[in-house]
């Protein structure tokens, strides 16, 4: 396979996106620690290359379904971080008006079908989006992001099989970060890669180094083009690692410090990509510092927006349960 030619502009977008996700997540961790962000927060630090490398091949009209660890997908797809940050805080200006929180951030206007609190729950949603695309004769695609743990769920097996028999334009991206909370991948499945499962559904499947954004970009490009050309679904396993606990507050007693340090030192996707861009003279140290600063400012602006936004009102509790109003009692009040 020939290496795809990627424009400098796209490469820089990829770098900026990864930095943006990293800065966002590290700031979210602080905000959680300060008790400003309630609930469960699952961060994407260390996995930035996966969402970025995949979404770099998508256009606005394409769809993605996301997971409980969904900030990275949302940011890469072009989600407004003010709206998501306000959502993390539970403010009325949030993308879900404060009714969803970290596990439910969404932006349907850019094809982001929503994060999901149920592991594996979003996988068939991407397949459904792909069915809509196909029946409407569109050339869009849908991507389902999910974890290694999710690849044990019925929705993984059923979703992939339905997509395969109906030849739908969808790409399944398994972010194998080695753990399902505390259970290592080796104790979840006796195969070496989730990609081995592609064969049982008769679809192409590949495993890729998820810390190498270029590698992710390349395999995703092939799978997405295949889907766009009406050739059906594919499965990608991106081997990755989360640099933080499963959720914020997780003491992570199930893995060694040594293991974590090894990944941080040798497999940080941002460091790896930055090195490549420096070598190619696409980026200088100054550019990189500037990008970092710019992203920090953007995130800070989002935090300010969230902090200064109003709380939702009590009467909002009753709103948005249904879309079509009817006769009779639809929503029982207090």
């Amino acid at each position: 396979m020939n290496k795809p030619v990627i424009s400098e502009e796209k490469l820089l977008w990829m770098y900026e996106t990864m930095v943006k996700i990293r800065v966002h997540e590290e700031r979210a961790a602080e905000l959680f620690a300060e008790n400003k962000v309630p609930g469960f927060v699952h961060l994407y630090v260390g996995e930035e290359a996966v969402a970025t490398g995949v979404v770099a091949n998508l256009k606005k009209e394409d769809f993605i379904s996301s997971t409980h660890r969904g900030h990275g997908h949302y940011i890469a797809k072009g989600g407004d971080i003010k709206a998501s940050m306000a959502e993390l805080f539970g403010k009325t200006t949030g993308c879900c008006k404060g009714k969803g929180g970290s596990m439910h951030i969404v932006d349907l206007s850019i094809g982001e079908l929503g994060a999901n609190g149920i592991v594996g729950g979003g996988i068939p949603h991407a397949v459904g989006a792909a069915m809509g695309i196909k029946l409407n004769g569109l050339d869009d695609v849908a991507v389902a992001f999910f974890g290694d743990g999710a690849s044990n769920q019925q929705n993984f097996h059923e979703g992939i099989n339905l997509a395969a028999i109906w030849k739908l334009p969808v790409v399944f991206v398994c972010e194998n970060n080695g753990y399902q909370i505390s259970l290592p991948y080796s104790k979840q499945q006796i195969i070496n890669s989730v990609a081995e499962r592609g064969k049982s559904y008769g679809i192409p499947a590949v495993s890729v180094d998820g810390q190498d954004v270029m590698a992710v970009y390349e395999v995703a490009k092939e799978a997405i083009e295949r889907a766009r050309n009406g050739e059906g679904p594919s499965l990608i396993e991106a081997k990755t690692y989360r640099f933080r606990g499963h959720f914020e507050g997780d003491p992570a007693i199930y893995r060694t410090k040594k293991e974590l340090e090894w990944w941080k030192e040798n497999k940080d996707p941002i460091i790896i990509f930055k090195k490549l861009l420096l070598e190619k003279n696409i980026l200088s140290e100054d550019d990189s510092a500037l990008i970092q600063k710019k992203k920090e400012e953007e995130i800070e602006e989002a935090v300010k927006f969230a902090e200064s936004s109003p709380w939702p009102k009590k009467e909002d509790i009753l709103k948005d349960v249904f879309s079509t109003s009817t006769k009779g009692v639809l929503v029982w009040e207090w």
């Binding site: 769809f63 379904s65 349907l108 094809g111 079908l113 929503g114 729950g121 996988i123 068939p124 949603h125 991407a126 397949v127 459904g128 989006a129 792909a130 069915m131 809509g132 695309i133 029946l135 409407n136 569109l138 849908a142 019925q154 929705n155 097996h157 059923e158 979703g159 099989n161 339905l162």
Partner: peptide, 14 residues
């Protein structure tokens, strides 16, 4: 899977 597909398809409005 079937219901999930239906939901995804509905959510897109397509």
């Amino acid at each position: 899977g079937q219901i999930g597909v239906a939901i995804g398809a509905a959510a897109t409005g397509l």
